[in-house]
Amino acid sequence: MEKTYNFKEVMSKEERLAPGHRMCAGCGGTVTVRAVLRALRPEDRAVVGNATGCLEVSSFMYPFTAYEDSYIHNAFENAGATLSGVETAYRVLKKKGKIDDTFKFITFGGDGGTYDIGFQSLSGAMERGHDMVYVCYDNGAYMNTGTQRSSATPQYADTTTTPAGKVSDGKVQVRKDLTAIMAQHHIPYAAQTTFTSNFKDLHTKAERAIYTPGAAFLNVMSPCPRGWGYDPSELMTICKLAVDTCYWPLYEVIDGKWVLNYVPKKKLPIEDFLRPQKRFKHLFKPDKEELLAQFQTEVDRQWEALRRRCEL
């Protein structure tokens, strides 16, 4: 479907997210937005949707919009439904001959707005099969309100509502596997990705998601230096460690077929991903080896399950 990935050519495409937004220095969220919008064909217009969250309050703070395309924010829990209304309007206005340009529909939500409060609205939009892409920029907590736990928060993470303390080791539960849940909606395309040095994985998936007719879901791990507690300049190192420890596997589900896009030559221990992040600091205190071992077991279990799925 898409051409061979030509890095230089892709990077020379017109920028669709303007600077001047108020996201924190080093934010992974806008790196995601730029990369996804870059996959649009230059001749196509887009309507960008957005759930309430860091991205929304920072990228459209009246009267400053950071978008080259039309943009709509409605509320926290309804990015899926809102864009499904826009997409339906597009179909009917085209049918009635009132517009003739090609528009694509992409909506962004953080993990809070996607895994939790916006879950129903997202599920509805995917089930109905609107020709749209829902992109979750997953940073694993409610960062906009100050790092509260979401169902995307990894186990044992220290957040402001699951603080590690004398009798607490941080978040109790493991993450919800949203990408798999979305794939089970029998949508034509669902994928999980993050930033790799040449951005091929993310770009290719965004392009597929946008240009596959029907509903598509992209889950993009988008690190948050503030919430995770690492130096902002280390964004790409953190992403690489997430992928090489198999904490965040890169895969896609195309028409129900599960495809693993990357298998690390040497699978690194999960400690390598956890150690640079302050939110896991308490796991490296004496007597916590058991928790680390348990974390590793869970990563291994999920990784093996994914591999089995992808072999079928």
Binding site: R45, E56, V57, F60, M61, Y62, P63, T65, Y67, E68, D69, S70, Y71, I72, H73, N74
Partner: peptide
Amino acid sequence: PIAVGPYA
């Protein structure tokens, strides 16, 4: 292109 629904 227009933008709807800002943080004000």
